[in-house]
Simulated assay, not measured.
Amino acid sequence: MHSYDVFTQYERNHWKLTDIDFSAVDKDKVKPEYVTIAKSAVMGESNVIAAVHGFLNEFVDDYDFSTFAVVWGNQEVQHHYMFKAWLDAIGEKVDDAAVVAMRAPYDPGITPSATLATNIISELTVNHIYRRVAGAVDEPVLHTLLLNASRDEAGHAREFIHYCKERLLRHPEETASVLETLYVYTSDKRIKHPVGIFKSELTELEDHETIDTAFELFLESIADADELLELQGKIRKVFGGIVNMDLSSNGKVRRALAEVIAA
């Protein structure tokens, strides 16, 4: 099983939260925007429980992917707690009620392939943003955490891509749903993430940082002028490789979707 290879690789190579010296946090280098980013990341990463629950419900007939989902979930919980630990080190707290509100599982996607596609976009997006934010952060412990998380998310994206390709080989009729998912997440001038789309209206999140807060801060303060286009182009290129089609623009995504539906 592919999940066995992933598990053994993570066991050999993955960093540990206990290796991080949070007493080394340089409080003199902590800026207000760092606190905002960390609190937003805690909320985004806390969604892992809902996601794993949703995966296990939706992929009840796929042991291999379900096992990967559990391994993936462990790393995402680690991300949640690493940002929490950094905030604890500087005396900042996240409202537990807001975290608890994220618990409800996701409903199944349009198709299982669409669910996998959504998570590919999620991982590629957060990988890019964590890496770029790390380059703008002066506080050394947070810088390290962001780089660690960015590398993890790149690995997660790789595995979701693997499982999406395998799923489409068995269920090519789900290709249209993958293209629809791509278009929904890359068709306008916003950074879209499943947590923001499906969880942002929770009343418990009112007056609290969310993952969208971090994305807005990123676009306003860190991102280059064409960075969103760069990120969306990267995502379309990955999806082009998954379905073996030219998806390098929104127009080409629409044409590909029309061709798949008509076939």
Rank of each mutant, 00 (worst) to 15 (best):
D5F: 09
V6N: 05
E11Q: 14
N13D: 15
H14Y: 11
L17E: 10
D19R: 08
S23R: 14
V25A: 04
V25E: 06
D26R: 03
E33I: 07
V35Q: 09
V35G: 04
A41D: 12
V42W: 07
M43K: 03
G44K: 00
G44A: 07
E45C: 07
S46Y: 06
S46N: 05
V52M: 09
H53L: 13
F59A: 04
F59H: 05
D62H: 01
D64R: 04
V70F: 09
G73V: 08
Q75R: 14
Q78V: 10
W86C: 14
K93R: 15
V94K: 09
V100H: 14
A101R: 00
A101D: 03
A101V: 02
A101G: 02
R103S: 09
A104R: 02
Y106C: 02
D107H: 10
I110M: 04
T111L: 02
A117M: 03
N119A: 09
I120N: 00
Y130R: 11
R131P: 09
R131A: 13
A134F: 07
A134E: 09
A136F: 05
L147T: 15
N148V: 14
A154T: 11
H156S: 10
K165H: 03
K165Q: 12
K165D: 08
L168H: 03
L169E: 10
P172A: 10
T181W: 06
L182T: 02
Y183H: 09
Y185F: 00
T186A: 01
S187H: 02
I191H: 00
H193R: 04
I197C: 04
F198R: 02
F198S: 13
K199G: 05
S200T: 06
T203A: 14
T210I: 04
A214P: 06
F215Q: 01
E220I: 05
S221C: 05
A225P: 00
E227I: 00
L228F: 02
L229K: 12
L231G: 01
L231K: 01
G251R: 12
